[in-house]
Amino acid sequence: MTAPMFYVSPEQQIKDRADFARAGIARGRSVVVARYRDGVLFLAENRSQSLRKVAEIYDRIGFAAVGRYSEFENLRIAGIRHADIRGYAYDRRDVGGRMLANAYAQVLGTIFSTVTEKPYEVELVVAEVGLDPAGDQLFRLSFDGSITDERDFSVMGGSAEAIAAALRETYATDLALPRALAQVAAAFGAAHGEPLGVEAAEAAVLDRTRHQARKFRRLAAAEVAAALEPPPAPKRRSRSRSRGGVGETAV
């Protein structure tokens, strides 16, 4: 017996698919990608030590995702392959974030508009660290392949709105890493009503000051813990001698 066929208008079809994808993404825990003084910071709420939401794609390019793990893992691997092949065929400097973001947009857009396929329930950020802060780039990619160029930070996942609201209040892009990490973690805390624990934090940076060609680095639990714990009472004399400069005192 075959099911009866009903007419569904294209508008309704697109809306249904978008609602389906949004619902899937909203179930996921959030990820923040934010510019800081020396590059780009990734902070994800993730209790797994092995199923990562943040990853290295290439020398200067990082990747963060929320949604269905198997789907964004496929996209991550495809991105690494795309970047590695291009860097091998041309030169390592010829691999850029915009190129990769465009490739992802094509893939996501095609899947979203193919009626026989389920739309991907994912959102991605492709981040590239520049030689100087002006060269940093954040591209946000949605489940339907739409692409936006974000300025200072990008928040994805279930509590994206609340975290973004908290960050807009406090965040400045000229912070040093520990302060930037603490600020982003505080935004998670403000959105959830409880502080983000170290065991639930997956953190990484694209650090332009790194000597190696590969600028991506995962932060060890100890480094995250040091940044997240409440700062000791400031001493007047040490503050004037602090090497942090403008970034340290801006907020």
Binding site: A55, E56, I57, I77, I80, R81, D84, G87, Y88, R214
Partner: peptide
């Protein structure tokens, strides 16, 4: 590239 590719994936 082979080593780096494996490590990243």
């Amino acid at each position: 590239v082979e080593l780096e590719h494996y490590e990243k994936i």
